[in-house]
Design a protein around this nucleic acid. Structure first.
Lengths: 208, 208
DNA sequence: ACCTGAACACCGTTCAAGT
DNA sequence: ACCTGAACACCGTTCAAGT
């Protein structure tokens, strides 16, 4: 549990290169392995062979580091769900793909996801980079839904409320999966498949 | 941010009474106000006018305190959802009431909810009190769903998978609400109403 | 039994100083 | 600019000791 770690770089050498990126990666790895409450700035520095205070050149404090993790997470999430929507052909099938991409992101990046939604960053400053990225990620979903409504594929109800509902479903599945409340990958896939199908029958426009 | 707090009891006096309960309540209050990452055992002790180490008579360590919070949360959740189901008449309407009771519990007890699902307690020991209470809370949902399936009200699909889906929906709504990703209580109510209605059209048996 | 006080090995953060 | 090392005010936890 303890034991001397340290070195990986010749001591006394400046870090040179992208320390900010290295700090984020090291933090992500620690969160994934030990959980976010076990994250310490000192150990991150030690692992990178860098002074304890070097980090403050790149982040104001620990909260700022976590905010950066969350911001990056929302950006990745937006890109991946948008790619699924566009590459899937922007139709009903693409909407399902978006849902799969969403949960897949959470499973592949549990550290990011936990920080994004674990209550570690307060959603204060409405104009912060974090808030902006969060909004942008949500807008991908709203826009896709609006397009499907225009084509008469989805029910013509309040788009934002519908989008929040869809978000709740995939967020719920992702959270339970990360929390290990579901048991095993197979069980997660089965739930996701079922959820997306029942979501569809719940919000699709009647075809008869 | 700092400032001397302390006292509330004559110093040097033994606590007498239910210290365990007092410790839990103080922890809950701090989590609600400052967040779980700001919870310190020393401050809990100080607030109760008790030694820093008195806590170890009732909990093995900080994780055990959090586990107790989570366990209590699952017990309350089970009682409240079960009450909604039974008092609602065990039908389709009662099922909706269960959903409302679930989200209401989360909103009324965000400290409990955050600890239950925030990744602070590892879901290790399968036979721990925590795991048992968690299973019991989930079983209320499974049993209700099974009853509705027997009456032909719900689709005759895998009950556990269906239950996990329903859980995902209410869990997603609850989490987003606690995270302040929705904006305001009115918005939360609107989403919950919509979600429960679309959940119904998604999983109810066809009536024609 | 239940509680205390000192001690230990940690934290995040600041700040004067080095290159 | 970017990094260091010492220092400060905190943590969780242990342990001998008190009632």
């Amino acid at each position: 549990m303890a034991g001397p770690l340290r070195e990986r770089k010749p001591p006394r050498a400046y870090h040179h290169g992208n320390l900010r990126r290295a700090l984020l990666d090291e933090a992500l790895a620690t969160i994934r392995t030990e959980g976010v409450s076990a994250l310490t700035l000192r150990e991150i520095g030690a692992r990178l062979g860098v002074s304890r205070t070097a980090l403050y050149r790149h982040f104001a404090d620990k909260r700022a580091l976590l905010a950066a993790v969350a911001t990056e997470g929302f950006r990745m999430l937006r890109q991946q769900t948008l790619a699924a929507w566009e590459e899937g052909g922007r139709g009903a099938a693409a909407f399902q793909s978006m849902g799969i991409a969403y949960v897949r992101f959470a499973l592949a990046n549990p550290s990011h996801y936990r920080v994004m939604f674990g209550g570690f960053v307060d959603p204060e400053a409405r104009d912060s980079e974090l808030a902006i990225e969060g909004e942008a990620a949500f807008r991908v979903l709203v826009d896709a839904l609006a397009a499907l409504q225009r084509d008469g594929i989805m029910r013509a109800e309040d788009t934002v409320v519908m989008a929040r509902f869809v978000w709740s479903v995939v967020h719920g599945v992702a959270m339970l999966a990360i929390d290990e409340q579901l048991h095993g990958r197979e069980s997660i896939d089965e739930l996701l498949r079922y959820a997306l199908e029942r979501l569809r029958t719940g919000i699709e426009a009647a075809t008869d």
